[in-house]
């Protein structure tokens, strides 16, 4: 019996150690390119990952928001519109959980791009934010131009389309996790609470990532 308990203790300890020593790292998604450079006669090959390109929008406070404002931040992006009757309410019900988990964290942001900028003006976005119960500068709702947003969505691996004949926008409900180097580190089905819990865990993992320094 003693031996048996001893064996169990050893197995438990070993598993505990293994668990603690095992750091989870998030994958880097999107297109990859091998770039070969020659510096001081030495040839090195680096992998260059897809990053989010420059953009310029206006947030719900009427402030100009460019990609520069996100330098050094981890952020989550999604695409929505305020009059969306289908998946947006459930997406933002779930995004509120992300907001509540990290709203007091510096270096973290949520960016919701409107895909209906004609309707979603600054006052409309502000009213939506108020009704959603969000304040401060953790979660920005952005108005830009339709073209820019549709092009930008592709860089986030998200598909958005023009209104269909029934007058509805067809768009993905993904939440995209972006690291400090503007690389894509995760995509999550924003309508599924389980996926959104995974996102919350992954944000913690990404915040703890040792290599998370700004590279220019």
């Amino acid at each position: 019996m003693k031996n048996f308990i001893g064996a169990i203790a050893i197995i438990l300890l070993w598993n505990a150690c293994k668990f603690n020593g095992d750091h989870k790292t998030l994958p880097i998604l999107g297109k990859k390119q091998a770039v070969t450079k020659t510096v001081d006669g030495k040839t090195t090959t680096d992998t260059v990952y897809q990053t989010i390109p420059a953009f310029k929008y206006i947030n719900q406070y009427g402030d100009s928001i460019t990609d520069k404002r996100l330098d050094g931040n981890i952020y989550v992006a999604d695409f929505f519109f305020t009059t969306c009757p289908s998946i947006c309410p459930v997406m933002h019900r779930n995004m509120l959980n992300v907001y509540n988990a990290f709203k007091d964290t510096t270096g973290f942001k949520i960016i919701s791009y409107s895909i209906d900028p004609q309707h979603d003006s600054v006052p409309v976005l502000k009213k939506y934010a108020d009704k959603l119960g969000i304040a401060g500068n953790t979660w920005w709702l952005l108005q830009g131009t339709k073209n820019e947003t549709y092009q930008l969505a592709k860089n986030y691996l998200v598909s958005v389309q023009e209104k269909n004949p029934a007058g509805e926008y067809i768009h993905d409900g993904y939440f995209i996790l972006i690291d400090k180097q503007k690389r894509i580190r995760g995509t999550y089905e924003g309508t599924d609470p389980k996926e959104v819990n995974r996102l919350i865990d992954d944000i913690k993992t990404l915040k703890a990532e040792p290599g998370e320094t700004k590279v220019q």
Binding site: S86, P89, K131, L132, T191
Partner: peptide
């Protein structure tokens, strides 16, 4: 109905 009104009929903040 559930997308907007929620699985528990809780609605969404002051929106729904």
């Amino acid at each position: 109905c559930q997308n907007c009104h929620g699985a528990h009929g809780e609605g969404l903040q002051a929106l729904i």
